[in-house]
Every structure is written in C-alpha cells, then in structure tokens.
Design a protein around this nucleic acid. Structure first.
Lengths: 240, 240
DNA sequence: AGAGTAAAGTTGGAATCACAACTGATGGCC
DNA sequence: GGCCATCAGTTGTGATTCCAACTTTACTCT
C-alpha cells in the first residue's frame, strides 16, 4: 500500500518519523529543498510541499536564509481555567506576567447579545486585554458586560470582585472551548507562526440564571494547554 | 500598506471577506483556479495557493472535478465534559450515537505511567473506544487503568460505576485540553479533511490523591466544542 | 588582527506547463 | 423516454525555472 500516495507524502512521513522518534532532536537542521530533491529523488515542488506541511504541523520551523530546523517544543504551559489566574500560572513557571487593558463602550454584536441574553446592539462595556509573559503577548481577551453593571471605577480585570461588590453574587462560569485558525489581527498581535491554531474560549459568568459578563479568550495552541479540575461524576451517570 | 504583500494574500483576503461577510453563502461555488487567474490577474501558483489556504482555514472545501464551495459550517456540537455524556449530547441534537470498544493489556508508556503515578512499563488495561454519530466516527478515546483495578467483567465504558463498585470513591477529574495536528492514524479513522486540527483531552480520574484511570480523548475541532460548567471563583481571587 | 565585503546557500513567492482522476452536463442512440 | 458515452471543466499533484530577501561563511583589504 501507500505506493500510489503522493510523492511529497513519502518525504513528510519519513521526516516526521525521524522527528517523533527522536532521531532528529529539537534544533537539528532539516535537509534543504535541494538536498531533499537529491536524497529522495523528488522534484523541487514535492520537497517544498513536504517542508510546508511539516512546518504547518508545527514540527519544524523555517527561516529565510538559514534553513529549517526541528522546532523547540517546550512543554505546553498549563492555564488553570477553573481559577483563571493567569499571573499565578505564569509565576509558577518563572515568567513575568503583565497585561494591557483598554476599555470602551460598544453595541453588542448579535452573538454577544445572545450570550448575555440582551437585545442586539444594546450598549455594553467592552474590555480588551493583552496578556504578556516576559513582555511577549501570549493571550488576548475581549470581555463584554451589559453597561448597567459597570460603574467604571474598579479594576476592570477583577470581574468577580467588582461584580460582587455591585451586589451580584456570581454562581458559576461556563466555558466553551474550541480551536480554530487565528484571524489575521490575532496572528499579528500574538506574533503566531503560520499554521499555529488558537484555542478560543467563550467564557460566561453567571449570577443565578443571569449572564453578567462574557468574554472571548484567545490562546495560542503551541504554548498553552487548559487545565480543568472538576468534581467526579457519580450517581446519575448514564450510559455513554 | 499591504502593497508589497504576497499576491496570493490579496486573493485570500478578498474571498475570506466575501465569505465572512455573507456575500458568499455556505454552498456557494468559489471561482476555479483559472477564473481566479483571470479575475485577479495572478498566476496559477498564486490562485492555487490562495485556495489551499482557504481550505486549510476550513472556510471552503474542494472536490476533484466539482470545484470549491463555501463550507457548510454547522454549529459546533457541544460536548459537556463535566458530565462526559457523549450519548446524551448526541441525542440532544438528534444524532444516533454508537461506539466500538476494544480492550487489551499493555505496558504503560512513560507519559501514561507519569499520569497514573506508576512505574513505567507497569501492566495496564488499555481500552480503545471509537464513538460514532449516525455511523460516522467522530471521536476517539484510549483509556488506561492500572491492571489491579480491572476485574474484567463490567461494562468498560462505565468507569465511574465500575471503579466505584470496586470500592474506590472517585473524587475529581482533571482534564488537560490542547489542540494539535492529528496523527495519520487519527485522520484516517476520523476521516478528517486536510488541515483540520483535533482537540486532545488528557483526562484523569482521581480517588483522593490517587489517579485511578487516565484517558486520551481525540475530538475533531471542526465538529465539536467542549463545554465546561464550573463553580464561580470567589474569595481567594488574586490579582491577574 | 579586525572590519568590511563578497559569495554561496536557503526560504518564500511566483509563473508556466503538464497530467491523472474525477464531476457534471450534453447529446446521441436504442 | 431512458441509457450510455463523450467531453469540457476542475482539483490535486508534480516538474521546472526564476527571483528577492535573507543568513552564514569565507575572504580580502587595510
């Protein structure tokens, strides 16, 4: 089998095997386009295609003039979403966390309105946060609150405290997690290499059955993993 | 600006805009390679590259002989990980869930041994599960338990019940979530289009401070989103 | 010896041509 | 009318060639 597979796949699979098996350590140089054409007896197109696929998969990284190398794959840093303590998580691994915060007013987009259970185009307070680790931007968040909850004075990053101080008792948080291709502005701000996906977390804080704040958190897949701690399911477990 | 940008990006951005703005509805045909070369005044290489990028982003899908079309993007189905009721989630959206289960014994890989806090190469019970929705495989899971917990008789999919019946009281579940490129075998089994990433959930069930079962769950990013419901953080919230 | 320069090699982008496999539609034939 | 073969169009893959921008190395000149 696999005899009639595209030629470039032969190259991809051989190099991928060498990388995942550790024959090629992180930092090791990958054969150049010309070397691949000679070693594997394929054309330049196939060699280039193979390198692009491997780069897309995050296994190698190319620099103009210098060549491709096996990518350093530092362990994905854990982000503990149950607590959502970005600074705690960063301190735990010896990074210096900072963040930029910008707040303004806007009209709720349709999807945000649905999440907040308000009418579309209702006024909301929008907060954009860029989280940095040792100066490098590593996470984006855009938070929306119905404007009635925001008194405009407290630390905007302290949702729980501020809303709590306003007499709202936050009861739970729901997070919807999926991965997608970054939008151009996101690749730009986070300085993402081509092919890296982002985790998109839609987080909503609830006070009883009322949503009081919702946010979109964008996290590069190649640097972080989300960690959830949940009570064990028991009792009413049904068949799956 | 953007004048010296690669030509193919001009095409990508124009088509992407048309799709995201709704000018091109799902199912609508995308100009073919030759049409793009004429309409945008670019070469075949640029046209091909643009189509490949858009396909990679999941915005369009191409079929040999028939052309590219704007991808149907059904809402991502929610998977409620807190309960991990695959069948409940599927029934809720009118799908018929089934699954294949295969169990055998194996030696713990190093990473699995760490997660289970046992010695590497200790014997474990390995369970592979392929979840299907309306017959199509949509999710993979491989579960590992130290062999001592497995009496080999109960329904293997009922981790909580079975382990509970063995006198172990499960207290919590931790899940590590990240996205990555699927391995060849995963693309194969799940029949993933090129470019689609998967969510990888490393789930561990705990009885007190002892891990009693750990599993790797592989979920296609283009079909599902994970939904977590957590108690609201309060009290000891520190600055972020 | 040190600094600056030149050369060789590499990636990313691009044009052009070619071919196999496939789809959809057309038109002819029974 | 119904069936089948043909044909144009399309994608995916591939070869070849070229060029700009960049990095690294080696060399030359002061």
């Amino acid at each position: 089998m696999a005899n009639s597979d595209p030629v470039y796949l032969r190259v991809v699979e051989d190099l991928r095997r060498q990388i995942t098996e550790g024959l090629l350590q992180p930092g090791a140089p990958i054969p150049s386009r010309h070397q691949i054409t000679r070693k594997y007896g394929v054309g330049e197109t196939a060699a280039r295609h193979a390198l692009r696929v491997l780069a897309q998969e995050g296994l190698i990284i190319g620099r103009v003039g210098s060549g491709h190398r096996v990518r350093q794959r530092p362990d994905l840093l854990p982000l503990h979403r149950a607590q959502a303590h970005f600074s705690t998580d960063m301190h735990a691994v010896g990074r210096r966390p900072t963040c930029d915060v910008k707040t303004d007013s806007a009209e709720a987009r349709p999807d945000i309105a649905v999440r907040l259970r308000i009418a579309a185009q209702s006024p909301v307070t929008r907060t954009r946060i860029v989280y940095r680790s040792d100066g490098k931007p590593v996470q984006l968040a855009v938070s929306y609150e119905p404007i009635v909850y925001n008194d405009g004075t407290d630390d905007i990053t302290q949702v729980a405290h501020r809303l709590g101080g306003n007499g709202l008792k936050l009861t739970e948080v729901t997070e919807h997690v999926y991965a997608r291709v970054p939008q151009p502005v996101e690749s730009d701000v986070l300085d993402l290499p081509a092919g890296v996906h982002v985790l998109h977390v839609e987080r909503t804080h609830w006070a009883g059955d009322k949503p009081v704040e919702t946010s979109d958190v964008i996290i590069p897949c190649d640097q972080f993993r989300l960690v959830y701690t949940l009570p064990a399911p028991y009792g009413e477990q049904t068949s799956r």
